[in-house]
């Protein structure tokens, strides 16, 4: 059996309508303010699906919610203090239209949360999810996924991978969950012909040639691994960091979190996990106020070292997927593109 099919564009909505039965559906949706965001939808008919714009968010929030209840606790007069686990209730979820950067982001989260330690709350949501990728024919202004080797087209990782080839999508089957979908809804799919895969290759070549950012990620990595960058660079960028964590929140691969208690009554409460950021001054502060990270000079060192050096050492590749979101987000101008360019200067 072939693992490449075509799906007519006219059939996309009916196909998603079918998928939406019994599954939660998350798609890039244009809201009433004109912003495109990955959004959970109840009804695909009439929904303003937007596959032409880069969604402002990634799908990180669905797998690692900004705020998630890990457990609840109860205290009793008898003195007992018991925790009850809270199992995520999202259920089977289909993510459609996930661009290569964001899909690579999920693959990285898998490394973080499923290797070494298996994080039970993440695992549940991940097992429940089906990823339908969308190759990027038109990289956006700040994109550099070509330099991080996580786009514009992806060859593995998705359950189904879509490429826009004109009047239809070329659909490649990646994993068994994807194969099961094609089998179940076979009426939508036609085996792809050579002309379709040729069109896909053409689209790939055009996409690859249309990045407006020239970013030397490999060179920056090499520099960091060999003798590091001058501490001046850390100091300069740290001085400009506003401690807002916008970069970490928007980033598909930033997964640092904190765990706190939120009392509900005097005798009960919730144990929460929420997003955190290594750039926050309290992130490493120890009891008594001592902080092993000098905020003034090293506030953003961990962020870039983790993404471009430690993860390369540990997993063989950087954990920036080149989505470019933090470039728009950072009003201090201390985003990763700025850093990479500074790191490459004079080397």
């Amino acid at each position: 059996m072939t693992d490449k099919f075509t799906l007519k564009k006219d059939h996309l909505t009916p196909f998603l309508r079918k998928l939406g039965k019994g599954n939660r559906l998350v798609v890039p949706l244009k809201n009433r303010h004109g912003d495109t965001l990955f959004t959970e939808i109840d009804e695909i008919d009439g929904a303003p699906l937007d596959l032409a714009t880069q969604p402002q968010n990634s799908i990180k929030q669905f797998l690692l919610p900004q705020r998630e209840v890990l457990s609840t606790y109860q205290l009793q007069d008898s003195g007992s203090y018991e925790f009850t686990p809270v199992v995520p209730v999202s259920g089977p979820t289909i993510f459609f239209g996930v661009r290569s950067c964001d899909l690579s982001g999920v693959l990285y989260m898998d490394v973080t949360f499923l290797q070494g330690t298996t994080d039970a709350p993440y695992r549940k949501k991940r097992l429940d999810s089906v990823l339908i990728g969308l190759n990027c024919n038109h990289p956006f202004g700040n994109c550099f996924c070509n330099a991080t080797k996580s786009g514009p087209f992806l060859e593995y990782g998705a359950d189904l991978q879509f490429t826009d080839i004109g009047d239809c999508y070329l659909v490649e089957v990646g994993r068994t969950k994807g194969a099961a979908i094609v089998e179940k809804w076979h009426q939508f799919f036609t085996p792809a012909e050579e002309k379709d895969t040729k069109k896909q290759y053409q689209a790939f070549l055009e996409a690859r040639g249309s990045f407006s950012q020239l970013v030397h990620v490999d060179q920056a990595i090499k520099r960091l691994q060999e003798d590091g960058v001058p501490s001046e660079i850390w100091h300069q960028l740290s001085a400009r960091c506003h401690d807002c964590a916008g970069c970490a929140y928007i980033c598909p691969t930033c997964t640092c979190f904190t765990i706190t208690d939120s009392p509900l009554t005097a005798d009960s409460g919730e144990r929460l996990r929420s997003w955190d950021a290594c750039t926050f001054s309290g992130f490493t502060r120890m009891a008594g106020g001592h902080n092993p990270v000098a905020r003034k000079t090293d506030a953003i060192r961990q962020r870039f070292m983790h993404k471009l050096c430690y993860d390369v050492q540990k997993h063989g590749r950087p954990s920036c997927v080149g989505c470019g979101r933090c470039v728009d987000m950072c009003f201090g101008g201390t985003d990763i593109l700025r850093f990479i360019n500074m790191a490459c200067e004079g080397s």
């Binding site: 070494g116 330690t117 994080d119 979190f257 765990i259 955190d276 992130f283 490493t284 050492q313």
Partner: peptide
């Protein structure tokens, strides 16, 4: 400073 204890939350980073 430590939150998860299992190598995920990254609060206790010490260089790499």
């Amino acid at each position: 400073h430590m939150k998860c204890g299992v190598g995920v939350c990254r609060h206790c980073h010490m260089d790499g």
